[in-house]
Simulated scan of single mutants.
Amino acid sequence: MSEIGRLLGAGKEAEVFEHGTLALKLYRPGRPKAPAFREAANLAIAEKLSLPAPRVHVVGDYHGRWGLLMDRVTGTSLADEMTPEPQLSAVKEMAALHQRLHREPGTGLPSLKARLSTNIERAEPVPPDLRDRLLLALAALPDDDRVCHGDFHPWNIMGSGDGIVIVDWLDACSGNPAADVCRTYLLMRRVLPAIAEAYVVTYAKTAGLTPDEIFTWLPVIAAARLAEGVPEENEDLLHLAALAPVDA
C-alpha cells in the first residue's frame, strides 16, 4: 500500500493527504471510528444517487487514526471565484448545485431535525429557558426527506463544470432543504457576509421559496452550531439563537 503523502488540506475534524493516486482523509488523533464509518456510509448513498461526491474505497485505521481512502479531488474551490471580488455567476452555480442535492431523497441518512435537537441539547452556552424555546421552535418547523449536505459552502465545492465535486459529507442528513440553505448562510456570514445574503436570495428565487422560509430556521441552526466548539462565534450565535419565537 502506498505511503501517506503530502498534506492536501486540513479542517477542524480531519486532514487530507495524498495516498498514491487517491486521497486519504484522516480524522484527528483521538477521534473514534464512528465518524469515519458514518461519512463513508453517507458517501455511499451519494454515489448511489449519482451525486458529485468522492467515491470511497477503504475505511480503516492508519497509524492509529481512523480515515477514509477515496478518490482524489483536483482543482480549486468555488471560494476562489468569490474572492476578492464576488462573482454572481459563482453564487448561481452554487445554488444550482445545492438544489441538485435537494431534489434527491435522503433515504438512509439520519434525520436533520433529530440531529439539530441533539446538538441544541448539548450546546452548553444555551441557557435552559432559551433551550426550551428553541426545541419548541424546532418541533414546529416543517420536516422533509431531502438530501441535506450539512456543510455546504464554497470551500467544500471543488473543480468546475462536469468535474465539480462536493467534499466533506460527514454531516449529511435527510431533512428540509431550507434548513440546509440556512446552515450554509450561517457558515458563510462571518467570512463572506454579502455573498451569504446573496446566496439565500438566489437560492430562494430559483427554488420557489421566500428568504423568510429559509431564515426562520436561523435560531435553531445557530443554537445547534454552539455544540460544535467554535468559541469565537459564541456571542454571535447566542444572539441569533435568542431570536427564537417566544410562543412557538
Rank of each mutant, 00 (worst) to 15 (best):
M1S: 14
S2L: 12
L8W: 09
L8C: 06
A10N: 03
G11S: 13
K12R: 15
E15L: 01
V16G: 04
V16E: 07
F17K: 05
E18Q: 14
T21R: 14
T21F: 03
L22Y: 10
L22N: 09
A23D: 08
L24T: 04
L26C: 08
Y27C: 02
Y27P: 02
R28M: 13
A36W: 06
A36V: 06
R38L: 10
A40S: 06
L43D: 06
I45G: 00
A53W: 10
D61L: 15
Y62S: 04
H63D: 15
M70H: 13
D71M: 12
R72K: 15
T74A: 14
G75P: 03
G75C: 05
T76C: 04
L78N: 07
A79F: 10
D80I: 00
D80W: 09
M82Y: 01
T83E: 15
E85T: 14
E85R: 14
P86V: 11
Q87E: 14
A95H: 05
L97C: 10
Q99I: 00
Q99A: 13
L101N: 01
H102L: 00
P105E: 11
T107D: 14
P110M: 11
L112H: 10
S117E: 15
P127V: 02
D129I: 04
D132E: 15
R133P: 05
L138E: 08
A139F: 03
D143A: 15
D143R: 12
D145Q: 13
R146V: 00
H149A: 05
H149C: 12
G150V: 03
F152T: 06
N156H: 13
N156Q: 09
G159C: 11
V167H: 11
D168A: 09
D168V: 11
L170V: 08
D171P: 01
D171M: 02
D171T: 13
G175P: 01
N176V: 10
A179L: 08
C182I: 02
C182T: 01
C182R: 03
L187P: 00
L187F: 06
M188P: 06
R190T: 09
V191I: 11
L192Y: 06
E197K: 12
E197Y: 06
Y199M: 11
V201M: 08
T202A: 10
T202N: 00
T202I: 03
E213G: 04
I221S: 00
I221Y: 01
A222V: 06
R225H: 15
G229H: 08
D236S: 12
D236H: 12
L237T: 08
L238K: 04
L240K: 10
V246L: 13
A248P: 02
